[in-house]
Design a protein around this nucleic acid. Structure first.
Lengths: 353, 353
DNA sequence: CTGAAAGCGCTTACAG
DNA sequence: CTGAAAGCGCTTACAG
């Protein structure tokens, strides 16, 4: 069993002191270029890997990044979203030699102890679910001087680096699409109360309708919770009673509940009632009819957030920019009323000739 | 800014040496009970948290657990599955004071360096996708003497601790259900080639049919890849040509493609063709008709795997048991041929009748 | 630009 | 059962 190679070995090999080797390896500008090169070569030749425990103990930086998310299983939305987010973050972290730690937001003590011990080099914090808890996190992060990036909109009043998807814009463009199709009485089925994503979807959707001259009375709000069941129920309660001709559900899952309700009651989609969702889940192209929805670049969100964080770590700069990613409206059969066109659309989706 | 409290502080407070305090805190049997209690109280009183970097550097054990998964985004199956698995593992790890690291299996160098440096206390390795790579992992894990638990069936010939869901049993019980319903010509749509899960679903399903007296010629195999699209295509190719009256898709996603195909061709489900999937995705209860499927306790899988790993870490015992979790057959409307009602629904829903 | 030295906070033989 | 001491592998003032 060969001994692990240490900084000392590298230093000896390069003919310098461990101190110099240490500096050279972290690109300290005080080291001469030739020395730095020599050390780099030696490290390479010996296949040197720094011992993180030692580095950490003596005040060095950690190569761990922590992604803090709300419960992975709570809402039906979450699994899809967070798996993509984690994948994007992990991939990017790995490319830069970092490792990704996952923490549940509600387990704050565990996280804070990590922070107090400076065990993580940076933090990705998903926000928008529990402002006061999130404020606690931000406070602790600041105190620990640990770089962080917020995923979602930052709690108001603070300026942090944050990144989010333009949810309002996505919902707005969907409203414009509905307007083009000429729908007159529209049902919106929300996610859980106080969920900022759901609120933004409602806000953007209403904004888009207003811009197209709709009146408040043409938009009906139903409380939902992101589940298919809540979509089914809201459809059941409102579609007939309120003469609804189009439904925008805050989530594809919820839209699926609406489609199921319509199927069970012989209500033709989209000809009697148009339906749209949000998220572009895996299956959205394969419901019947295929579901109009908004694609969110969640994987890219994970990537960019991590890249920004690594930037902040390396430059120890505290920027407070906001980065916004654009979603994409995906129009499918469930919201396009021209029957023939819809059929053709289906055909092309499924490669039917 | 208050100084961090160290082992030394605890030792002083308890009136013992740091060495004794260290031993007491890790329940070394050589410490007297009274001393151990006193130290524990002091640690409590001072709110002591061990410095993991220091512990690690001096040969102590890590409080990190690493979960190694194949790509989180590759197959459509994966997101649902891995988000649940991660959630179960994270939750359990946290309860025991451990932190969870996520690694992509294909990024093996990063993982191996973690291993070589003894930075992780234990590893959860998801297997069943790439035997030779997985063998490499196991070899390195053994060499590093790092405790690990395999999630999935272990590569043959080796005895390791492993845990998996009884996929064969789940598919078998679904076959029995199909037999009860009296279906005569059955289409199976697989996942990707060489995917062990998919193979097990096929194997178990065929076994179940054989047990009920079916002949080989009554079961038709179609190659799929877990996507809805592959379900649509396989249905298109086989259902009419081969006179299929029931379809078992290796995944709910794929089953959804089959249902969509049937809807697009006015084929009544389940009255003309019964459909079943596997996984019990969030939406399975909300397709039309609701999808018969097999629920897999993935969250529990994550929990149990982590618990077993922590056991192995604490007792430094090398067990080689296999733990098997039972799936649950969930019978819904898509496979139960009861009614005129269903036919009428179908007709009106899709504007036939 | 470089080196000698102290120190980070623990663990673990080694003595008693 | 307990303590003194060395050491884990790095980083970083402090001198030059």
């Amino acid at each position: 069993m060969k001994k692990r190679v240490t900084l000392n070995d590298v230093a000896t090999h390069a003919g310098v002191s461990p101190a110099t080797a240490s500096r050279a390896l972290k690109n300290d500008s005080s080291v001469s270029i030739q020395t730095a090169q020599r050390v780099a070569q030696s490290a390479d030749a010996l296949n040197y890997l720094p011992n993180m425990a030692a580095r950490l103990l003596s005040g060095g930086a950690s190569d761990l990044i922590c992604l803090v998310v709300p419960s992975l299983t709570g809402q039906t939305l979450s699994r899809f979203y967070y798996a993509s987010l984690i994948a994007g973050a992990e991939e990017t972290a790995h490319q830069h030699g970092y490792h990704l730690l996952i923490k549940n937001k509600k387990e704050s003590e565990g996280f804070f102890s990590l922070l107090d011990q400076q065990r993580v080099g940076g933090v990705l914090l998903r926000v928008g679910h529990n402002r006061s808890l999130e404020q606690d996190y931000i406070r602790r992060l600041r105190r620990a001087k640990t770089p962080f990036v917020l995923i979602g909109k930052p709690p108001s009043g603070k300026s942090e680096f944050s990144i989010h998807i333009d949810v309002i814009g996505g919902a707005r463009s969907l409203a414009h699409h509905f307007a083009e199709q000429g729908y007159r009485r529209i049902l919106f089925i929300s996610g859980p109360k106080r969920n900022s994503d759901s609120n933004d979807r409602y806000y953007g959707f209403r904004l888009g309708l207003t811009e197209r001259g709709y009146k408040d009375s043409q938009l009906i709000f139903a409380q939902g919770d992101y589940t298919p069941e809540s979509g089914f129920r809201a459809a059941q309660e409102h579609i007939k009673r309120d003469g609804i001709d189009a439904v925008f559900a805050a989530t594809d899952h919820t839209a699926l509940g609406v489609i199921t309700y319509c199927a069970s009651r012989n209500i033709a989609v989209p000809d009697e009632v148009a339906v749209a969702g949000y998220d572009d889940q895996d299956y959205a192209a394969y419901t019947w009819p295929a579901l109009t929805t908004v694609y969110q670049p969640v994987h890219e969100l994970g990537r960019h957030a991590t890249e920004q964080l690594l930037n902040a770590i390396r430059n120890s700069q505290t920027r407070s920019d906001t980065m916004i990613l654009a979603p994409t409206l995906v129009i499918r059969g469930s919201s396009v009323r021209s029957a023939k066109r819809a059929i053709n659309h289906q055909k092309s989706v499924y490669g039917i000739g």
